[in-house]
């Protein structure tokens, strides 16, 4: 036991384990495992036929970490920076990865990006639809209730926050739009009723 020199014994012997579990011990030798040794030079380069790869053309100014000495020879081209979120993210890339500002600005850029796209989508034939895009239909087709009731699920305590995270900003935006429209209507009515600037 713990308070004496020897380790607590294992209930099953290696032979018993080998009988019960197919493949028990086939990777027993720690030196004969695929990730060992670490940091050993690999002669074959896994199929690469270059020492430094040819460079991918940079068709627009590609943002990069200031901790890189150069733009990497290959990079993703999905969703280039654009709009206000693009400006925020571009600013974020002025800070090194060790700086909190780098990551917090990227998170801010993510939220602004979402709103930019939500608003843009309202001008299209396919506006964002929080009902279909959250997939909540699955609650009715994939046993939403049965998957929760009577289970020992600790995540149920905070799952109630998910609709708030998804719907909260939409409700807040609708509320702000309503309050703004109402105050504008009131101020227009006030201006119209004092007789100086009639409103037609």
């Amino acid at each position: 036991m713990t308070y004496t020199p020897h380790k607590p014994p294992i209930a099953e012997s290696p032979e018993e384990l080998r009988r019960r579990i197919p493949g028990w011990g086939v990777d027993l030798d720690p030196r004969d495992r695929p990730s060992v040794p670490k940091l050993q030079f690999q002669e074959d380069f896994t199929g690469a036929h270059w020492e430094f790869p040819e460079r991918q053309p940079e068709k627009y100014p590609r943002e990069r970490s200031v901790e890189h000495g150069m733009l990497t020879p290959v990079f993703g081209t999905a969703q280039p920076l654009s709009g206000v979120s693009g400006a925020i993210r571009r600013h974020a890339y002025r800070y090194a990865e060790g700086r909190m500002a780098h990551w917090l600005l990227l998170v801010l850029g993510d939220r602004v990006d979402a709103w930019e796209h939500h608003l843009k989508s309202l001008l299209t034939l396919r506006p964002d639809n929080p009902i279909t895009e959250t997939g909540v239909k699955a609650e009715f087709t994939h046993h939403g209730l049965r998957s929760r009731v009577g289970q020992h699920r600790t995540d149920l305590k905070h799952q109630v926050l998910d609709p708030v995270i998804v719907g909260g900003p939409w409700i807040a935006a609708a509320g702000a739009a309503y309050v703004g429209a109402r105050s504008m209507a009131r101020s227009l009515a006030r201006v119209g009723s004092d007789g100086r600037r009639p409103v037609h």
């Binding site: 959250t134 997939g135 909540v136 239909k137 699955a138 609650e139 087709t141 994939h142 046993h143 939403g144 998957s147 699920r153 995540d155 799952q159 998910d162």
Partner: peptide, 10 residues
Amino acid sequence: EGYHVFSAKL
């Protein structure tokens, strides 16, 4: 729906 099922562990 696939993401919701996996995320909500249904």
